[in-house]
């Protein structure tokens, strides 16, 4: 954590993600209006004292819908990453330790997942299996699993063949001990970087799905779904898509920034020294 905060990118990313996480946790409570309440007197209204960000085509308060939709939009992305983490890391560790058959099969399976035409498959799987958010998360999790698989395998493979591990096995270490003591410390940092960047990726896919109206039922607000509605009323509210789009972009950007900060560690540029000092002073 300290390494991440040692760079400007890391600080900004963590700050943005913290704000967004707060939105997701408390957004629905902060909403000034009922996100589903329709006001026929204020349809597609511009920003006003009562509706800070205006209203949509049914006269619903845009700010309230954004806040209410934040939870769903983010939790879906996080859960998809959790699914991908399990489906990627576990087979990768098994492929390194359980011999050639497991290795061959898991490589082919992951290659297949990479070959699947991403969004079409996510759409098809979600819609055919019941068109719910759970199905969407499973589909997205499967699609991002190869990312975790590749990174874990790349980190675990050199360890498995290293001499000190051979020595440990000869000394009577159980496979579990080897995994915990030798493999795990190498795998965790690499997986942490992937988790951050794939969280960004899965947020993009989940918001693309909700944008298409897949995985959610209409009155429920999500950022992607709101963007889709705004698109239909562009001529009335040309700047309507701006706020939901900015929220999605900021979240994804912060995830990518966090991934970069995790990967690069402390600053490479001298200009960042000041931030280091500030953070050191505050901790």
């Amino acid at each position: 954590m300290r390494r991440v905060l040692a760079g400007r990118v890391g600080v900004v990313s963590v700050a943005v993600l913290a704000v967004i996480a707060l939105l997701a946790a408390f957004g629905p409570l902060l909403a000034p209006h009922d996100p589903l309440l329709q006001d026929p007197r204020a349809i597609l209204a511009g920003p006003s004292a009562q509706h800070w960000l205006g209203t949509d085509n049914l006269g619903r308060d845009v700010l309230s819908r954004l806040l209410a939709g934040s939870t769903l939009s983010l939790v879906a992305g996080v859960e998809a990453v959790a699914v991908g983490l399990v489906l990627g890391v576990v087979p990768a560790l098994l492929s390194v330790h359980l011999g050639r058959v497991v290795e061959w099969v898991s490589l082919r399976v992951m290659e297949t997942f990479v070959t699947l035409p991403f969004l079409v498959f996510a759409v098809a799987m979600t819609a055919l299996l019941g068109n719910g958010l759970q199905q969407a998360m499973l589909a997205v999790g499967i699609l991002i699993a190869p990312g975790f698989y590749r990174v874990t395998r790349a980190a675990a493979l050199p360890v498995a063949t290293a001499q000190y591990v051979e020595a440990a096995v000869l000394a009577g270490a159980s496979p579990w001990t080897v995994l915990r003591r030798h493999v795990w410390p190498k795998v965790v940092p690499a997986v942490a970087v992937s988790t951050a960047s794939l969280l960004g990726a899965s947020l993009v896919i989940v918001s693309s799905l909700t944008f298409l109206g897949i995985g959610i039922t209409p009155p429920t607000p999500t950022w992607g779904g709101m963007l889709a509605t705004d698109l239909q009323y562009l001529y009335q509210r040309p700047f309507g898509p701006f706020v939901p789009a900015a929220l999605i972009v900021a979240t994804v950007g912060a995830c990518n920034g966090l991934a970069d900060a995790l990967r690069d560690g402390p600053s490479r540029r001298p200009a960042r020294r000041k931030v280091v000092a500030d953070v050191a002073a505050s901790t």
Binding site: S207, L231, A245, V249
Partner: peptide
């Protein structure tokens, strides 16, 4: 790095 954070559908909406 900016583009990496822009989902294609956001770019599409912006272009429109």
């Amino acid at each position: 790095s900016v583009v990496a954070a822009l989902p294609p559908f956001v770019v599409a909406v912006a272009l429109i």
